[in-house]
Simulated assay, not measured.
Amino acid sequence: MNLFRTSAAVLALTTGLLALPAHAEVVQENVSGDPMYTANAPAGYRMVGDILIARPMLLAATVIGTGLFIISLPFSALGGNVGEAAQELVVVPAKETFVRCLGCAVSGYRAD
């Protein structure tokens, strides 16, 4: 009986959490009428997901990319593309980790 109650509780909580983003999108309104307001103001569930899932993964990608850059440095130096390797392996993940706003899908920083 205890296994049944535990399974039912887990199923109910999982279903509720999966329905939360759909419900949050319906409730959110653009009061100002400005389309940039909704683009620059992410919902709370996106912020929570960003801080709990995306940022730790991006930090790990930055650390792993830095290690790979150090390992590949002699080869990229011989090939003459140290700048490109540093940009793609270290700088891009670091910018997404530390510069992008919390919950935003696109970084506000442009390297044009």
Rank of each mutant, 00 (worst) to 15 (best):
G16A: 04
G16N: 01
L17M: 08
L17N: 03
L17Q: 02
L17V: 08
L18Q: 02
A19N: 05
L20Y: 12
P21Q: 02
A22I: 09
A22Q: 09
A22S: 09
H23L: 07
H23T: 10
A24R: 11
A24G: 00
E25R: 14
V26Q: 06
V27H: 02
N30H: 10
N30Q: 13
V31S: 05
S32H: 01
D34M: 00
D34E: 03
P35G: 01
Y37Q: 10
T38F: 04
A39R: 15
A39P: 00
N40F: 15
A41I: 03
A41Q: 08
A41L: 03
A43E: 14
A43Y: 13
G44A: 11
R46N: 02
R46L: 02
M47S: 09
M47D: 00
V48S: 03
G49L: 00
I51Q: 14
I51Y: 10
I51C: 14
I51F: 05
L52S: 03
L52M: 05
I53C: 01
I53H: 03
I53V: 11
A54S: 05
A54G: 00
A54H: 03
R55Y: 12
P56D: 13
M57C: 13
L58V: 10
L58I: 09
A61N: 07
A61W: 08
A61G: 07
T62A: 13
T62G: 13
V63M: 06
G65H: 07
G65E: 13
G65D: 12
G67F: 04
G67K: 04
G67H: 06
F69V: 04
F69W: 07
I70Y: 08
I70D: 04
I71Y: 08
I71V: 13
S72A: 15
P74T: 03
P74H: 02
F75A: 11
S76R: 08
S76W: 04
A77W: 02
A77V: 03
G80R: 07
V82K: 10
V82E: 06
G83E: 04
E84A: 15
A85Q: 12
